[in-house]
Design a protein around this nucleic acid. Sequence first.
DNA 1: TTAATATGGTTTATAATATAAACCAAATTT
DNA 2: AAATTTGGTTTATATTATAAACCATATTAA
Lengths: 93, 93
Amino acid sequence: MKELDPLLHSQLRLAVMSILMNVEEADFVYLKEKTESTAGNLSVQLDKLSTAGYISVEKGMSGKRPRTTCAITNEGRKAFEEYVEALRTYLNL
Amino acid sequence: MKELDPLLHSQLRLAVMSILMNVEEADFVYLKEKTESTAGNLSVQLDKLSTAGYISVEKGMSGKRPRTTCAITNEGRKAFEEYVEALRTYLNL
DNA sequence: TTAATATGGTTTATAATATAAACCAAATTT
DNA sequence: AAATTTGGTTTATATTATAAACCATATTAA
């Protein structure tokens, strides 16, 4: 049976990747609301995805407030697709 | 976003459930070979699935050697199907 | 016949992971 | 000017997965 990329096989990281697959970019606050996660948990998981090269993270400013924007990378897209393929063999889809 | 049943969202337990979805029953040795897991890990994960009521575990004898046979329960089948449904929303399948 | 090895596991210790709590700086409101 | 909100990060803790160590019986080899 195929390996399931452990970086993607995590509920929160998978949710984030799932969102980023379908949108040009998304900011921290949006991801937090959509995934109903705590800020701390989200911060940690974004770091991991970023370190793995699966997403890019831009820390900028929106007016006077900080704004962190995330987008999926090509590598991330590829990894996500491979993960889905691997999962199919488990789910018989 | 839907919750992913943490009992099923584990590579080894998911692999076991996946196998048991497609077969009447399977014994310990077969599951170990198919999943390429260590005996210890498999034993622990089978216990968890059993405790959750997702599989039944029968410890018997095959000739002079012990033989542990597993089968999915209706509850397990239902949980697996719900897990697949929840995952679909992440994978856009 | 007894010592070594294989079979089919379980129990326990450890490493990895996810998660939340505590914290921080700046902006806003009271 | 004190309290609260916003947008996070860092660190501590709880949970989980995993393998290592172990156990009992059976088989094989010396």
